[in-house]
């Protein structure tokens, strides 16, 4: 099994090659311009890892939530690759992947992705070897997240670009909260790939025809309708 993982859902464009033994290689550029760099990075990664495209068995891609356009660059790239290489797609949540970045933490892991206007995409995880989601992925006002966190007795670690955008609010509301290091705080395709391994073992795969991004938020003109 060889998984080519892609994540362009945030400021970071990242690609990785993963197999059952773990990470073979990863490129990450935390500098936008996804449409320009994603494919060349992938090409270089495969060359440097001496891996032929034909050896790839799965395409793993971030399904969201995240930047709408970024998600679609990743999704379109994944679909084109999956169709041409005749392999399945494994969609992985951006929040699951962020939690995986800090999976060794023993308390509650709370990824927060800035969804603008005081909102974040978030979920809550418990770790201890394998991360497990405690609450569904959702769009929440930051203050709602703060009150949920105050209800936990365990230590809470925040991860994701929300900790940069809302640092001051988080620090003053939750003085004991722990924040992921800058290295663990960016999207990493390696985490997408590792989470994909688990999904593949559970048979949670799809094809280039049915994979679609998970935005949570509706497009602007429909946002206030149900």
């Amino acid at each position: 099994m060889k998984i080519l993982a892609i994540d362009s859902s945030s400021k970071t464009a990242t690609v990785a090659l993963v197999d059952e033994d773990g990470l073979i290689g990863e490129f990450s550029i935390n500098h936008l311009r996804h449409s320009v760099i994603l494919m060349p990075m992938m090409d270089e990664l495969l060359k440097m890892a001496e891996t032929k495209k034909e050896e790839i068995t799965h395409i793993a891609v971030c399904e969201g939530p995240g930047s709408f356009t970024g998600l679609r660059i990743g999704a379109a790239t994944a679909k084109g690759l999956a169709q041409s290489l005749d392999v399945p797609i494994v969609g992985v949540s951006s929040l699951d992947a962020l939690a995986y970045n800090v999976g060794e933490f023993k308390g509650i892991i709370c990824p927060i992705i800035d969804a603008l206007r005081g909102h974040v995409y978030t979920a809550f995880y418990k770790s201890g070897g394998e991360i497990s989601r405690l609450k569904d992925v959702s769009l929440k006002e930051l203050k709602e997240v703060l009150s949920i966190v105050k209800g936990y007795s365990e230590e809470v670690l925040f991860v994701g670009d929300g900790i940069v955008s809302y640092k001051d609010t988080l620090k003053s509301a939750l003085p004991d909260a722990i924040f992921a290091s800058p290295i663990n705080n960016i999207s990493r395709a390696s985490s997408i790939g590792m989470m994909a391994l688990k999904k593949i073992s559970k048979g949670e795969i799809c094809t280039y025809l049915d994979f679609k991004p998970y935005y949570i938020r509706k497009p602007a003109p429909l946002e206030n309708s149900k």
Binding site: S35, T77, G80, S84
Partner: peptide
């Protein structure tokens, strides 16, 4: 564009 590039590359 992304789809087309990936398809050709694959």
């Amino acid at each position: 564009l992304s789809y087309g590039k990936a398809l050709a590359y694959g």
